[in-house]
Design a protein around this nucleic acid. Sequence first.
DNA 1: CTTGACCTTCCAGTCACTGGAAACCCTATC
DNA 2: GATAGGGTTTCCAGTGACTGGAAGGTCAAG
Lengths: 145, 145
Amino acid sequence: MNIGDVADRSGLPAKTIRYYEDIGLIRPRRSANGYRSFRESDLHKLAFLGRARALGFTIEECRTLLALYEDEGRESAQVKRIAEEHLERIDDKIAQLQSMRATLAHLVQACAGDHRPDCPILEDLARDGTGAAGADAPPAGRGGA
Amino acid sequence: MNIGDVADRSGLPAKTIRYYEDIGLIRPRRSANGYRSFRESDLHKLAFLGRARALGFTIEECRTLLALYEDEGRESAQVKRIAEEHLERIDDKIAQLQSMRATLAHLVQACAGDHRPDCPILEDLARDGTGAAGADAPPAGRGGA
DNA sequence: CTTGACCTTCCAGTCACTGGAAACCCTATC
DNA sequence: GATAGGGTTTCCAGTGACTGGAAGGTCAAG
């Protein structure tokens, strides 16, 4: 198979497949003309990678998962640990986005959205929290990170 | 104020503040010794930017929001539109993460996580979905090798 | 005069691609 | 044989929003 075929069958862009070869995730052979020549096993790996990426695993995690997949002597605990860590990351991200969402939705709802300049959204963004107040100002750590 | 002061008071790293100057978000003056010299208004802008970034607005959106903030003749509708678009992006992202989360949580739950190699997580990642099913699969034997 | 904290610029790296240029290869048609 | 059109190759550069680090200038204290 040439790269276009595996791109079609794996759903990954040819560019991405070349990139995956670049970083050593796959090692397709070469035909006499210099074209990459993919075997079914390469396609299989690429599909694996595509699904792992779709679940949000990083490239390095994908590399590890692929290695575990090919290691008959793996322990499922190794795989599970990676997945659990990733799950935690996802949960953190969701929480962060939901917090953003709540604040933003509140502001959007409060904004008239008409021709007048008064805008609660801008007012909130511009509110003073620089510790430049008269008294001592405790740093109000607000959602970030 | 020097950059360290505004960094402390805005909560932004000095590196980020320099970067914001680089891309034209702020324009601090310079002291005779070449140091950046920040006024209260610069600090105010940086705090504004910090909060907008914490809500997930892109740098370009921040640039626009800042311009609107300084434009007395703005219409709140302009601000609201930006915020609403961003809110939609956030919702999309949350949905995507929740879908990942659901799949992953299911797999993690199904995995024994012990010393044995059998692993539903790997099995799922490796499941065949390459369109190479047993029935009609014309060999794509084209070109080279 | 030295120390150490602060500041400066510039370059490179992050992550996972993505776009584009210039050139080569292969097949089909005229 | 020429040409057109696809597919493929490599390499370079850019994305977003910083972040790390090197090499050096500035300043106040001791």
